[in-house]
Each structure stands twice: as C-alpha cells, then as structure tokens.
C-alpha cells in the first residue's frame, strides 16, 4: 500500500446520506478477479445515463450531466465530501478500490459504515469523520466557492480550509501509523506468529471439536 502523505485537493460534495457500496460500485463489476480497473465504474448508475457492464468502453458512454462528479468544476477532485453512514451495505472492497482508482485520496463525512471503514484504511484511503455541523458547513463552502480545496495533514490530524480554518480529526494510532508508513498489516501480524501458534495449540487442547 502507498504511503499517505499529507496533501491538498479539490473537493467534490456528494450530498446524500446512506450511500451504500452497491451505489459506489454496482455488482456487475464485482465479477472481475482483478484488483484494478474499477475507477471508470465508480458510482456507475449515477454517473452514466446508460446501463454499464464490464468490458464496455466507458469513454464512449453518455454521462449524466446532473451527477456531481460530471460537473466541470469537480474534475480532478481528490477529496470526497459525503453525508452520514457513507459506505453502508455490502462488504465489497471494490468500493474503496473504485474510489482510489478514480482519484480520491480521502473521504470526509459525519459517519462511515464499519466494514467499509476497515476496508478503506487497508488500501490507503483516508476516511475523516467530522462533526455533522462542521460537515454541513464544508458542504456550504464547497458549493459556494468553485475550486474549493482542502488541505489534509495526517501527521497533525488536521484539515485546513481555504479560509485558513484548521479542523482537527481523530484517528486510531495504529491506523495512522500503518497509513503513514504504507505498512503491510499481514507482515506485522506474522511478527507474532509464535504467539498465534501457542494460542492455537492451547485452543486445540481445550476445544478440540473446532479442529476437525
């Protein structure tokens, strides 16, 4: 996974609550056995006017001009501003893959669904949870100021607005550490292989029916 370095980027506001992972990347694209290639189908049903299927040339498909990511002012956006319970529903990791491969590096919302939250961090997509009132204000600012950008400093755990306001956010120390160093979590866990073995041996003795 790539290291998350602090960055600033254009903000795209997606103004709806409970955006589910079926909407982030519809099921037909889950048939792929690859980890890449999902960016063009991010929000497929909202983004295009026709029905998307794997293997289509997405550059030839009719875009929905009303969808926020298709508006000229949001081209090249790197930060997605979202509402409550973003990423609910299916556990598909294709959702953070699609967001990252589209070009998003961070999502800011008042709340995220549990599995999506974990999946995102495993792939270096930073999720920033901010108070609903603050998110509301960012939505207003983003709508009112074309070219609205935010600066994210992961080390400092802060988001800075164009007006110079700095907003702090919380992040678990372990997640921050992994993100900043681009660490492979499996490698980290395997450093404890001996402990896992000991635990397993004890478990096998105490509850042998679990080891058929």
């Amino acid at each position: 996974m790539d290291k998350f370095i602090s960055r600033e980027g254009l903000v795209a506001p997606l103004d709806r609550a409970n955006v589910d992972t079926d909407a982030v990347i519809p099921k037909q694209f889950l048939k792929s056995i690859k980890r890449t290639g999902y960016g063009p189908n991010l929000f497929d049903e909202w983004r295009y006017l026709d029905h998307g299927e794997p293997g289509m040339d997405n550059s030839k498909r009719p875009l929905n001009p009303d969808f926020v990511l298709n508006q000229p002012r949001y081209q090249g956006a790197q930060i997605l501003l979202a509402r409550e319970n973003f990423g609910c529903g299916s556990s598909r990791e294709h959702a953070p893959w699609a967001l990252l491969q589209y070009g998003f590096q961070a999502v800011i919302a008042p709340g995220f669904a549990d599995i999506f939250f974990t999946n995102s961090f495993k792939n270096g997509l930073l999720l920033i949870k901010l108070d609903g009132g603050i998110v509301d204000r960012l939505f207003k600012e983003a709508a009112g100021q074309p070219g609205y950008r935010l600066a994210i400093d992961l080390a400092e755990q802060s988001v800075t607005t164009p007006g110079g306001e700095t907003i702090k956010f919380d992040i678990e120390p372990f997640k921050k550490h992994c993100l900043m160093n681009g660490l492979d979590e499996i490698g980290l866990t395997l450093e404890h292989a001996a402990e896992i073995k000991t635990f397993e041996t004890r478990r096998r003795e105490q509850q042998p029916w679990l080891f058929n």
Binding site: S91, E93, K122, F174, E185, T189, I196
Partner: peptide
C-alpha cells in the same frame, strides 16, 4: 470482512 482481511485471515488465521 473485506478482501484484504480475507487475505489476512488466510495468511495468519487472525484479524486485527
């Protein structure tokens, strides 16, 4: 769990 965690469980029999 997500796919990264599937891989994590395959490799380590554990989850963080």
């Amino acid at each position: 769990i997500g796919t990264s965690e599937v891989e994590h469980v395959l490799a380590t029999q554990c989850l963080v």
